[in-house]
């Protein structure tokens, strides 16, 4: 004698066109006298019908032009990363320019070149690490489990980055107000550098971290998301 649970699985199979011929008669027999399974079938059928109607409506009303525009006009992730790097490098160069008296500008710009390269590489590394592409998925194993691990790693990374950027901002602000230099104005230079780093901190804290925490909660990582 099969249990209600097994009959309900059979109901799902029938609903999705996968019930074997031999299983049909016993299911109908059971359904004729089991109210619980009748209710289950009604709910399952109802839910499927509503979902189908919703999908049909969405497909009919979808703004396919917008979708297509997005596909054609989308900016490649690597282009966006390059733009970020150029922006950071240009910002640092701008701060060097603004904080240095005119006769020394050229020489100081040249001297900051190596650190600028380091900065660009650092930004590239951070962007590559955080912007894991959708297609870079593991092809084997349980998908949701893989994503759980990925999201967890993302969450921990974002938390660490949040503290790291806060520390960098604090250090730059300290240098801006307490630092001394003979060839340039430390307030302008370090203060100017603190602005984009503070922007990154703000983004991590207000956008990235809450988003990853929501994703973690959705994937069942409730405790990890709370901490």
């Amino acid at each position: 004698m099969a249990s209600c649970e097994e009959f309900q699985v059979a109901i799902e199979k029938r609903l999705h066109g996968a019930l074997g011929e031999a299983e049909r008669a016993p299911l109908d027999e059971h359904l004729a006298r089991c109210e619980r399974c009748q209710a289950y079938e009604a709910t399952a059928r109802g839910a499927e019908a509503v979902m189908e109607a919703q999908a049909r409506e969405a497909v009919a009303q979808a703004d396919w032009e917008r979708v297509e525009r997005g596909i054609r006009g989308g900016v490649h992730a690597s282009v966006r990363m390059l733009a970020t790097q150029v922006f950071f490098a240009a910002w640092v160069a701008g701060m060097v320019w603004l904080s240095t008296p005119a006769p020394l500008r050229g020489e100081r710009l040249l001297r900051t070149m190596p650190s600028m390269v380091v900065l660009v590489v650092l930004v590239a590394f951070v962007a590559a690490y955080s912007g894991r592409r959708l297609t870079a998925l593991v092809d084997r194993g349980e998908m949701l489990e893989t994503w759980r691990q990925l999201v967890l790693a993302n969450l921990l990374w974002a938390r660490r980055m949040q503290w790291a950027t806060a520390a960098v901002v604090a250090f730059l602000l300290y240098k801006a107000f307490a630092g001394r230099a003979t060839t340039f104005d430390p307030t302008v230079f370090y203060g100017g550098l603190a602005v984009p780093v503070a922007g990154v901190w703000f983004y991590l804290r207000r956008v990235k971290l809450p988003r990853v925490a929501r994703e973690a909660r959705d994937l069942g990582l409730t405790d990890e998301a709370r901490r």
């Binding site: 979902m51 919703q54 979808a62 917008r66 959708l134 297609t135």
Partner: peptide
């Protein structure tokens, strides 16, 4: 789009997700 609609619960989100998925698939 149908899949994304059920997963996100909102049509605008479903369109965004479909677009992102199609771009990712194509690339």
């Amino acid at each position: 789009l149908a899949l994304c609609l059920h997963l996100t619960g909102r049509r605008a989100d479903a369109e965004d997700a479909t677009q992102e998925a199609l771009v990712a698939v194509d690339r």
